[in-house]
């Protein structure tokens, strides 16, 4: 289903969800209880707001409006990923049944795993490959959904957190989570650190010299590693 602009498939936008978090107002609050995409969006915006507050002392409205490049990038990806996406077949025990996971459910899960790591915010999350796997999903075929799925995740890391450690930890967590919660055959999990988020400078009487004592931010690496 095509939706105009930045609207989710249900018609709501991230801006509306952000306003709802900020003010509690939305045209149809009952809808939020019945829409998994909006719920995933609200969860992501809450996490983003928490991180934004830690870093930028910004309020929820600021987080939702995406004034910063890194946050804007995350919001742009959220708009895409909060849609149901493709259907991923699951094995069934009865030939009359059809069982699915939605791609949106899995990317939201990936995002929540990344966001759960300290000092980390998920950016783009993508599943590449044939998720349908031929859509043959009876249990007795002993097949798994998709063949050679590649997971690409971009993250922003708060300055001071070890990037390689974060990337390796996230890869381990995602491998474990996806093996448990999906029947996808994961070929690789690629983690790319796209942003290093600097802590805001603390205003003090000696601000000009204090800032100079901070070590310069490390160059942003672009790490692409496959599963062992």
């Amino acid at each position: 289903m095509n939706t105009p602009g930045d609207a989710l498939e249900c018609g709501h936008s991230l801006a509306e969800l952000s306003t709802y978090l900020d003010t509690g107002e939305i045209a149809d609050p009952a809808h939020l209880r019945s829409c998994p995409e909006c719920q995933a969006g609200l969860a992501s915006l809450r996490r983003l707001s928490e991180l934004g507050s830690e870093l930028l002392s910004s309020d929820l409205a600021d987080a939702g409006s995406g004034h910063d490049d890194w946050m804007q990038s995350i919001l742009d990806n959220l708009r895409l990923e909060l849609r149901p996406g493709r259907n991923i077949p699951l094995r069934t025990e009865n030939p009359h049944d059809t069982l699915w996971e939605t791609e949106g459910a899995i990317t939201a899960l990936i995002r929540s795993v990344a966001d759960a790591l300290p000092g980390t915010a998920a950016g783009k999350c993508r599943l590449h490959g044939d998720l349908a796997g031929g859509e043959s999903n009876t249990a007795d075929e002993n097949s798994t959904s998709g063949a050679g799925i590649i997971v690409d995740v971009e993250i922003a890391v708060v300055y001071g957190h070890p990037m390689e450690e974060r990337a390796a930890e996230l890869r381990r967590e995602l491998a474990k989570t996806l093996a448990f919660q999906t029947e996808l055959t994961i070929e690789a999990i690629n983690i790319t650190v796209t942003d290093v988020l600097e802590l805001p400078a603390t205003p003090t009487p000696t601000t000009p010299t204090a800032a100079a004592t901070l070590p310069p931010p490390e160059p942003i690496p672009s790490e692409r590693e496959d599963l062992p």
């Binding site: 995409e37 969860a43 949106g104 459910a105 939201a108």
Partner: peptide, 14 residues
């Protein structure tokens, strides 16, 4: 009565 059941998992969250 036989049934054809279609189940969509649309959210996986703690």
């Amino acid at each position: 009565r036989p049934a054809a059941v279609e189940v969509y998992v649309v959210k996986v969250q703690p």
